[in-house]
Design a protein around this nucleic acid. Sequence first.
DNA 1: GTCTATACCCAGATAGAC
DNA 2: GTCTATCTGGGTATAGAC
Lengths: 194, 194
Amino acid sequence: MQAGRTATQDRIVETADRLFYERGYDHTSFADIADEVGLSRGNFYYHFKTKDDILTAVIAHRSRKTQQMLAAWADHAADPAGRIRQFIGMLTMNAARIRRHGCPVGTLCTELAKLEHPALPQASQLFTLFRQWLAQQFAQLGYALEADALAMHLLGRSQGIATLASAFNDEAYIQQEVMQLNQWLAQLPPPSGK
Amino acid sequence: MQAGRTATQDRIVETADRLFYERGYDHTSFADIADEVGLSRGNFYYHFKTKDDILTAVIAHRSRKTQQMLAAWADHAADPAGRIRQFIGMLTMNAARIRRHGCPVGTLCTELAKLEHPALPQASQLFTLFRQWLAQQFAQLGYALEADALAMHLLGRSQGIATLASAFNDEAYIQQEVMQLNQWLAQLPPPSGK
DNA sequence: GTCTATACCCAGATAGAC
DNA sequence: GTCTATCTGGGTATAGAC
């Protein structure tokens, strides 16, 4: 555990993380979080001074969780293609949640962009974690030159799937597109350049 | 003009349309809209009783605009493939706005889903307009059986592009993916079925 | 149709007792 | 660390004069 982080703060951050995902950042009030954690509104401010502080903590928490997940994927699959399939499999695994609330990263970035919130770059960094990890896998597949573009392409495809699945409340569409993503990966044209 | 709609109401709806897109629905207040239109808060309620009423009017307004746009595309391009390229070209044409605020339809649906707002199905209908129009074009290209899946695929790709362009504030990425979309369209495998 | 004034509520945030 | 009580601001919405 990091210096300065207490058990109560962790509970607040985990609850806020979930509520920001389910209801959105702006639409989640201090009272909502405090109620779910079981704290009074007044006590809440002992742990976090402002709402932006909670957002910062939530993004940092998501960043740690993401890095752990990426490391676990790297352990579970020996080859780069298998690792990329782990990423794609995330859509299947979280299909129910995605159908209801979209992608946690994408919807947060979308909201912060509208709010012109200064934390948008930090939130986008969550995308960057996936982007760099995916680019690394594509590079190991031999696509050195186009690794980043391939990573962005795959990220974009995933985002579109999440957005439409949520708008249409349609889980079957996710599975249909996941199949196409795996086909796309299996049939990538050979690497360009030397 | 429809019965019951006045010039002032139209000005309100057009301003609300823009502000909902730029700032989000929940984050846009009556005062914001009234200020930009040049009305007092009190007078505002003469034209619209509740915020939901404005949202309903904005969605209806967008629906009319979308149907006009789709009809115009159908006029500008004689063949179905050209019409689909008009859809893809929308990403290029609106690249600057998309980079800043995402897709108007996608971001609205994302927000309404989080708010569990009863107008989400109406907002999703805006997607359906594109979906059915695109499916029609793919059917005319001979893809009768997979027309809807192709339409959803293209819609999803566009949504992902808009989401990432906005998160990374990156317009070049839009152009890069638009090129890939046009390639995808040109190199579609031949229709299945008989 | 347009205005001012105001009611009312809920949000973020603070003070101070325990 | 936790609580109750409170301040302040902004939001939706209404009443009533002009």
